[in-house]
Each structure stands twice: as structure tokens, then as C-alpha cells.
Computed example of a mutant assay.
Amino acid sequence: MANAEMLAKVKNANGFIAALDQSGGSTPGALKGYGYKGDEWSSEDEMYDLVHKMRVRIISSPVFTGEKVLGAILFERTMDGEANGQPVPDYLWSKGVVPFLKIDKGLADEANGVQLMKPMPELDSLLERAVAKGIFGTKERSVIHLANPAGIAEVVGQQFEIGNQVLRHGLVPIIEPEVNIKSAERAEADELLRDEILRHLDRLPEGSEVMLKLSIPAVPGTFDALIAHPRVLRVVALSGGFSRGDACRELAKNPGMIASFSRALLEELRQDTSEEEFDRSLGEAIDEIYDASTEKVAA
């Protein structure tokens, strides 16, 4: 079963969840955003070593603590790595930050206006490893591009199928059916997604709780019914391509929704800055995202 202390923190504490889970095709972009030119690595292993160093620098910063950061979502290699001589999940929890694991293997090609998750044939063994390493929950992402009812139903069905598999291992799934914020049908897709998720939430076994990671809705308040649902532990928001300033402004219009940002958290961090400047930039980002997660404004 999920760690009771971690569960209480995720459910009740103020703060947000840092997404430090770039993998595969998104890793080169994350490194370039961090200030690398792209010629600093010549193999996949070297690339992942650099991104691991970036993540360790972030979580080792004195401003990255459980006071404002509730949790951190990790890539599998990060879960298996170390930070300051400790396994990364243990190190995070020593700072009061709850560890999560990204489990999806990327996106399938678009069909019916959506992209499903690729198959995960070895998921049970990965979940067993996650439990052994002290992981609290998981995250799995698919993407919705159009307000296609059949496609959205398929995405949500797959998400909850995987979510139930995660629950059987005693972990808490973060279900992430992202709506593309550039979609011309974004508002309608938000509504279809909300209604489909509600149908699946009502079918969850008694006592089961999931988390939801959703794009900030086009119309503030669209996801209020999900936030209030008794089977939902927390609703978190992805930045989805918004700058940090825009993402925070939009998030602040949605009471009960907290951040789980990746690019918007890291956008001003650079590998060649001094530790003092790095900590200052990271601290400013954490403060801004924390405020948008906890201090809400009228839409």
C-alpha cells in the first residue's frame, strides 16, 4: 500500500509537483533548454548522464524542498540512479518530496484525433521495482488533439485500464490525458474529457483513489467536478507549452488545481550558471508556481 505519510502529504499539503521525467525524444530538447548545444554527447548513455546530472542539481538545491514541492515525477533511469550517495527516491523523501515514476513508453500515432500510449508489456515488473524503491505513485500520458468523442473515450479507457493495474500494486496512478492547448477544439475537448473521466471514476472500487494530470482548461472551472470527486486524490495541471508566466496566470483561475510543470519550471535554468544564480532562478520559479497553486484569483 502507498506510504501513509506520503499519502497525507499529497492529499492535504500546499504545494505542487515537479515533473522531472523527460525521456526519449524529449531529452535532447530539455538539455538544449538547459544550455547545452547538442554536441556534448555522442551516445544515448552520455545524454542520459547529462540529464541525470541536471536533475540531481535541481533536487539537491537548498530551495527544492517539501515546503513548496510536494512531489517529483521521475524518469525510470532517474529512479534507478543516485543523488548525493542515496537512491534518488530516498533522497527526495529525505527532503519531504514524494517520489513518482513516469511509466508510459511514449505515444502511438494519431488516430481519431488522439494519441494513445504505446504498449507496456513489462509494466508489472516495472511497478514491482518501483514499489521496492519507495515510489509512491506513477504517471502515464496520452494526448487529445480534437474533440472526437470516440477517440477521447478510447484514451480515457486506456488510461483507467493502466491506472487499475497500478492500483493493484499499491501505487497511486496519475492519469494524464493531455488536451493539446493549441487545438481549435480545446474547450469542447475539455468538456468531453471531463464527462468521460467522471464515468470511469464512478466505476473505481470503493477506497481507490487516483490523481489526474490535465491541461489547464480553456474555460476556468471546467474540471471542478473532477476536483470534488471522492475518488480523486488531487488534480494537477501540466503547463502544456505555456510559458511559466502564462501557465501560472491560467492556473490561478482554477481553485483546487495545483501545478505539475516541467518546461515551465526549468525554463530559466542553465548549466553554466553559478550555484548561487542557479538556486536564485530555481527559487523564483518554485515561488511563482507555488503561489499559482495556492493563491487563486477570480476568472
Rank of each mutant, 00 (worst) to 15 (best):
A2F: 13
E5A: 15
M6W: 13
A8T: 15
A8H: 13
A8E: 15
K11Q: 15
K11P: 10
N14K: 15
I17R: 01
A18Y: 01
A19G: 04
L20F: 08
G24I: 14
G25N: 14
G25Y: 13
P28D: 08
G33P: 12
K37Q: 15
D39T: 15
E46T: 13
L50D: 10
L50T: 13
V51C: 12
R55T: 14
I59A: 06
F64V: 09
G66Y: 09
I73F: 01
I73R: 00
I73N: 00
E76A: 15
E76R: 13
T78L: 13
E82G: 12
E82W: 11
P87N: 07
P89C: 06
L92W: 06
S94T: 12
S94W: 10
S94F: 08
F100G: 05
L101F: 04
K102N: 06
K105L: 14
A108T: 14
E110L: 12
L116E: 04
L116T: 10
K118I: 10
K118F: 07
P119F: 07
P119A: 05
E122G: 10
D124S: 09
D124L: 06
S125L: 12
R129H: 11
A130N: 03
A132D: 10
A132Q: 06
G134R: 03
G137H: 02
G137L: 02
L146M: 12
A147Q: 01
N148D: 15
P149F: 08
P149K: 06
G151S: 08
A153S: 14
E154L: 14
V155D: 05
V155K: 02
Q158T: 12
Q165Y: 06
L167Q: 09
H169D: 06
V172Q: 04
P173R: 02
P177G: 05
E178P: 06
E178H: 03
N180Q: 11
N180E: 11
I181K: 01
S183V: 00
A184V: 07
A184Q: 04
E188A: 05
E188R: 01
D190A: 00
D190W: 01
E191L: 13
R194H: 03
L198P: 06
L198R: 03
R199Q: 14
H200M: 12
D202R: 12
L204P: 10
L212S: 04
S215F: 01
P220M: 00
R231W: 09
R234D: 05
V235L: 03
V236N: 00
A237K: 00
S243H: 03
D246G: 04
A247Q: 01
C248P: 02
R249N: 05
R249K: 09
R249D: 04
E250P: 05
A252K: 04
K253Q: 08
N254F: 03
F261K: 00
A264C: 02
A264W: 01
L266R: 06
E268C: 08
E268R: 08
L269Q: 03
S274T: 15
S274K: 07
E275Q: 14
E276M: 11
S281V: 15
L282C: 02
Y290K: 00
D291N: 07
T294I: 05
